[in-house]
Nucleic acid binder design. Structure first.
Lengths: 208, 208
DNA sequence: CCATGCAGTTAACAACTGTTCTCTGGAATT
DNA sequence: AATTCCAGAGAACAGTTGTTAACTGCATGG
């Protein structure tokens, strides 16, 4: 199925990925709107002008980073929401999954949290679009749940948004606790669990 | 009580405020980490070197902006949480208050949302500190509520954080809808109201 | 096998940055 | 009235930025 790329295109994608990786590293300590194209090419070890072969601007690169950071996350979210088990187990599993993801891709998570409200419009819009997709997907998974009988579409969507936002908040807290002692990480876990539990209690009694 | 400042100190504070105002305007379309000190002084019409008379760096100015944006907000929050009335009324009033605040100080709100996870550490820390204060204050107000009997401190604090985060999310949504048609603003209002309602339902049945 | 295409290079540009040092005019202090 | 103080100005610094143009070498398709 996958057509093997020629030597040429392979090299190109390799430098492109190197640019993305270098940018992501640089963005751990600054915002996209202050990221210079020369800074990125210097980190890769390539001429400044080579940048233009891959991206029109750093904003363009930012949009590509959004795709890289969130694009592959959709299946994971779907399965997380729709896993079976009682409420407590599901909450624990979801939080565990977020914690693992932050551990595995801290720079990606930081980038999304930072640029969601950041100074570069196209990137903001790309993130909003992906998060809206997440909310829609969570909503369709929630709809399948027996607890959702009697719920109208608007309420399901608002609950989905609540979950998505809560997910991001939790991820951001784990990020801050990345280099902190294990104790603080567990505090984050427990607070997040209780917040999700409160939301699920509200959900259970919504139709009273 | 208030000692009238000399001509000298008055002029100084005036330029200082002009710098803060100019910076806030410039920050509507970029992040703090890309804000140049020359950019700010140029906008005010003052020599670049004058900047150093007031701030050590743009990061320092950012911290001052956090104080300006959030420092005066504490009394407002306290009274909002502790106002009487049934749950529905209180929710409506809180959201109305957020909407008015975003209308009155959009640049401040944008700045906080943007720099909360932004690329400048001291500013991030200043914001986190203020938000932690908010959470503590909300917690003590919640504790006075008759609905909170039987709640332990940890649970009250996690609920307070939930409210504070929800407040920021709502403010950010109003911000995006600032120049949008009235219809979208009302959608934001309704979604926010339902989310707060779900949380308060969860709160009511928490001890089951 | 040869001509084309194109990723990456080199060099140069005007404009911009933060920071230093020196200076000045007028308010504040004595 | 004489002196000190200090917010802001001015000029200069080395270094940075994005963008342009013309180039080189090598993989590619005819």
């Amino acid at each position: 199925m996958s057509h093997t790329l020629g030597i040429r295109q392979a090299q190109k994608q390799k430098t492109r990925q190197a640019l993305l990786d270098a940018a992501l590293t640089l963005l751990e300590e600054q915002s996209l709107s202050s990221l210079g194209l020369r800074e990125v090419t210097r980190a890769v070890g390539v001429a400044p002008t080579a940048f233009y072969r891959h991206f029109r601007s750093t904003a363009d690169l930012g949009v590509a980073l959004v795709e890289e950071a969130l694009g592959s996350l959709h299946p994971m979210i779907r399965t997380t929401v729709s896993t079976a088990g009682d409420s407590g187990e599901r909450i624990a599993r979801a939080i565990e999954l977020i914690a693992r993801h932050v551990d595995a891709y801290p720079a990606h998570v930081r980038f999304i949290a930072r640029e969601r409200h950041g100074g570069v419009q196209p990137v903001r819009e790309a993130i909003q679009a992906q998060l809206a997709r997440f909310a829609e997907e969570v909503k369709t998974e929630l709809a399948k749940d027996p607890e959702s009988v009697g719920w109208n579409d608007d309420d399901l969507l608002m609950l989905a948004h609540l979950y998505v936002d809560q997910m991001l908040i939790t991820a951001s807290l784990f990020l801050e606790a990345l280099e902190a002692p294990q104790e603080q990480r567990e505090r984050v876990t427990q607070v997040a669990a209780r917040q999700l539990r409160l939301i699920s209690v509200g959900r259970r009694h919504w139709l009273d």
